[in-house]
Design a protein around this nucleic acid. Structure first.
Lengths: 349, 349
DNA sequence: CTGAAAGCGCTTACAG
DNA sequence: CTGAAAGCGCTTACAG
């Protein structure tokens, strides 16, 4: 159990004041180049790493950001989305040697409480807001707190902090046009949670596109994103008299579950039924046939979100320095691209 | 942007010293009951939450623990295991109002560096060590640092800190006996990464059990746990002359991929091939047929790991107080149970 | 039981 | 360019 070295140790070894050590270490004026290099050498030799708490207390910054996820213990694991997002976030954070504090909560109330506590404790300098809703009390709550934040999703009208988002309307249109071109006229969509912003955006895009094309029917049924509901709703849809010839799922987990149901009912894919998934994770390539899906680069998205938050916090990460224009209030990322695979084919009515 | 209230504010409002406020808040002797209740009331009214950095600096404790995960951005999401584990860990941590710092790393060197930095910065009071290897340099590294830690996996011989683990030998035996009873005589296992401790334990258990029963062949092929390799190895196995009638997978993702390959080859499940998965996540119930698998309660496991770490750190969580005997160096959890589903059936040789 | 003071390890004006 | 000092917001011996 080695002892931790402090600036006092370095100061003593270098024969200078603690202040000088601090200036040297932080690349600030106030020390000559010779003393600076000498101090730096000694610090490196002694393996100095500054005590976070002391630094935080001095500069009033936690050197960390937080993310609160509202899911149950059982369902959180199944969505590859979050881990990929976090993974991307971290890539940017580490560059600025910021830490990520993660908290899983059960209810909105708990989530708000976490934000308040984090803010009051100064445990984090900013937060990522996930699963943005169409009318989301967390937005004002966080803004009122004065806690820097980035919404992972958008666009958000009248937002008081930046939102980083993909346009979901265009891919929604892409899917329907693609299915239409394949001859599908009865299409169903098993959508996500109705209160979520991106669900609403997709809802509207589907409706708009459907109105432009001569579909026989385009139905949307909302779900809770779980495989159970995906399976259940698929079973119901496929048991109806005029069953759809194509089903679009708002995530990958439900699509996999839907494929399971299709197998269960003995339907040939894609001959008798075409399936499309949103959020292409590795899952979509594990099944047979592989699932046609909408592909986004989630780690890159997470990295972008982190960049915006860092620049908001004013942290001097390299990336943040390069792209100070990310301070704008809405950052749009490249929309999801359709990746056609074996689960879609021409309709046989 | 409300102002954060400090103990100085409370002291002023209550007309006492900061020391008195601290004693009152921390339930220590040194203040009369009347002043204590008065101070507490004022603190509550002002919405006081202590500044973490200041507290940490004083007591030399970060009030946080860390977990470093070594995966790539693309593959980390697919394994439900980690999020479930983290979710369980958090349930215990929140009770003691400890935070969880998460870091995703690419290499062992990076991981060791993270531990050293965390320790030097005093950013965490302890860490969880995942993916324990048969010969794991991280064990001594962490122990030498004097950083409290819990190994998520074991048992570890001569360990210098506690390990929390499930017995994997018994379930391994269960699977083989079950398959044998179903009449399977050619069984293959697509195992995980060879260097991992639990892989080695399962390897031995399979070998031992196989030796006790009259199998025609029991082969083990190691993999990297990804769906790609799961699919690839399954394809190779099923294309061989004397193909196995049952395949056991060391995780769920590979099992799902294996099922996809079976479908691809037109094999009837379970008539022509039985499949078994380890680590029953929701994934196993999404497919058709649903996958027979070995079920463990991962969130509960995570909670147990956190309990042991908290007790090690000496934090006064309620759970830790109740179970101080968790300071022992090896905590065994309930082994995984076989959950038979549609993917296994009698062998048709 | 209570108050004044020192200290945790940094940063940062402020004099020399 | 350099040093001594105060301060961040807590905790905790140490006197009264």
């Amino acid at each position: 159990m080695t002892r931790r070295v402090t600036i006092a140790d370095i100061a003593a070894a270098a024969g200078v004041s603690k202040g000088a050590v601090s200036y040297a270490l932080n690349g600030r004026p106030g020390v000559s180049e010779t003393t600076r290099t000498k101090i730096l050498a000694i610090a490196a030799e002694m393996g100095f790493v500054p005590n976070r708490a002391a630094r935080s207390l001095s500069v009033s910054s936690a050197q960390a950001v937080g993310i609160a996820l509202r899911r149950s213990a059982r369902t959180i694991g199944i969505e590859p989305y979050f881990m990929e997002l976090i993974s991307g976030i971290e890539a940017t954070l580490s560059a600025g040697s910021f830490g990520l504090t993660l908290q899983i909560v059960g209810t909105v109330e708990e989530e708000l409480e976490v934000y308040r506590r984090w803010w009051a404790e100064r445990r984090v300098d900013g937060v990522f807001l996930c699963d943005v809703g169409t009318s989301d009390q967390r937005l004002d709550f966080i803004a009122d707190l004065g806690l820097p934040a980035v919404a992972v999703g958008g666009p958000i009208e009248g937002a008081r902090f930046p939102a980083v988002w993909h346009d979901d309307a265009e891919p929604s249109r892409d899917i329907l046009e693609y299915l239409y071109a394949l001859g599908h006229r009865r299409v169903a969509r098993i959508a996500g949670i109705p209160g979520l912003l991106h669900t609403a955006i997709r809802d509207k895009a589907y409706d708009d596109t459907a109105a432009d094309l001569a579909f026989e029917s385009v139905t949307t049924i909302h779900s809770d994103y779980t495989g159970e509901q995906g399976a259940q709703i698929t079973r119901r849809l496929l048991s109806s008299a005029k069953r759809p010839t194509a089903i679009v799922y708002d995530n990958d987990v439900m699509a996999v579950a839907g494929l399971g149901v299709a197998h269960e009912l003995g339907l040939e894919i894609p001959e008798q039924l075409s399936l499309v998934a949103w959020d292409d994770s590795q899952l979509c390539r594990l099944t047979h046939p592989a699932l046609t899906s909408l592909t986004r680069d989630i780690p890159a998205y997470g990295a972008k979100c982190a960049e915006v938050l860092m620049s908001l916090i004013g942290a001097a990460t390299e990336t943040a320095l390069q792209t100070t224009e990310t301070r704008t209030f809405s950052v749009q990322c490249k929309p999801a691209q359709l990746s056609p695979r074996g689960s879609t084919g021409p309709a046989q009515n």
